[in-house]
Nucleic acid binder design. Structure first.
Lengths: 217, 217
DNA sequence: AAGTGGTCTAGACCACACC
DNA sequence: GTGTGGTCTAGACCACTTC
């Protein structure tokens, strides 16, 4: 890493192979392998069997977002968390979401809407669909006491998912629930998680104006 | 992982130690160690010396954003990339940024402003400051041909940085450059990178309306 | 065909944090 | 004190991919 940041080895340059570096640094090849694997996973070098390792041409810069439970995110800032459940009912999933979640049209899922407050100010509006076919325990759960967000984190491990961020003008419902007017910009996150090929939940999070999402490089 | 997603082992449960698992799976302890280290880095288990490994109580869900070079991001969507350099001059860094970058007030940095176009439609407005004390080669570089974004990725490795995302209403300059009116919401990313304790560059990216940033869980 | 990284083994020592 | 994970070693075999 030092030689890359010092520019002794520049973009595209080949690196010595593992055995050579092991000898140079006076350690075992496995130790070099682990170091290089870590450096590669951080995007600084590219490794190919037989082809050898090279300093990444266009380092794929990766930023990591740690997604907190909303309650903890609010409490960490020193504010008091409160959550208000607006809606919780088994309903037909809208057609657009059926397609996105790859389930047959008119599949029924649990529709949960709630608002999280920080010190009694609206923080985020959560509009969520939960698939009871994958997490049947959801039918016996009361989302008044524990938010759906938190319950799912604790009870529904996922295998993969995606997370989309965009900016938007709030619609009428969001204006009311977040107590803002329609001339502000809000950050919207849409998160969908899967257990293998089956969708667990999809949620749209509309954050109050001024919210910032921070990632680490 | 199977036992966690199957809920054989639930949130908070202790896992057998490495030696026991190695025996159970008929492999070496180092193999178990590597697997568990990977699983821990994905946030599913928590490991403590002497304390043992446990299924994470509140799995820290991590989303990863691969930050592309703007040109490649545009070209990957099939559009033609073009970039227009608006401004490129050594200037005093504004006071607010001096503080954020932890440099003395009235430090001079290279101020570069440009707009990237996708098929001749404005895509993002890039407002950047580059620290010539860390990357002196920047003085001999022509950002007309290669964008500052791309040049930095290729020539200025960083040790760490941060990346802030928020939603905003465009100011007058942004309205003009992105060809939008002031009633839309735009996504704004502010990215700062460092080489150890020294700031390399800070950039504010104002994306045209409708832009979506995608992360992988 | 040959060289590279990918992976695994069996063993060892150590730092740390819990008892 | 003691058990845990963290790390390293020296050696081995293998899969992949480029030459």
């Amino acid at each position: 890493m030092g030689r890359i940041t010092n520019r002794d080895w520049r973009a595209g340059d080949p690196l010595p192979n593992e055995s050579v570096l092991a000898e140079e640094f006076g350690c075992a090849r496995a130790t070099v392998n682990r170091a290089m694997r870590d450096i590669a996973s951080a995007g600084f070098i590219v490794r190919r069997r037989k082809g050898g390792s090279h300093v990444a041409l266009t380092p794929v810069r990766k930023a990591v977002l740690s997604i907190p439970v909303t309650r903890m995110e609010i409490e960490k800032s020193g504010a008091t968390w409160r959550h208000h459940l607006l809606h919780c009912r088994l309903e037909n999933l809208p057609a657009g979401l059926c397609e996105k979640l790859k389930v047959p049209s008119r599949t029924k899922m649990l529709h949960v809407k709630s608002v999280h407050f920080a010190d009694e100010r609206p923080f985020v509006f959560e509009d969520r669909w939960i698939n009871p076919a994958v997490v049947p325990q959801v039918n016996d759960t009361d989302f008044e006491s524990e938010s759906a967000n938190e319950w799912l984190v604790r009870n529904a491990p996922y295998s993969h998912g995606d997370y989309l961020l965009s900016a938007s003008i709030p619609d009428r419902e969001e204006c009311t629930l977040l107590a803002v007017d329609a001339n502000t910009a809000i950050l919207v996150a849409v998160r969908t998680t899967w257990l293998e090929e089956r969708p667990i939940t999809t949620v749209r999070l509309a954050y109050a104006p001024g919210h910032i999402i921070q990632l680490q490089l």
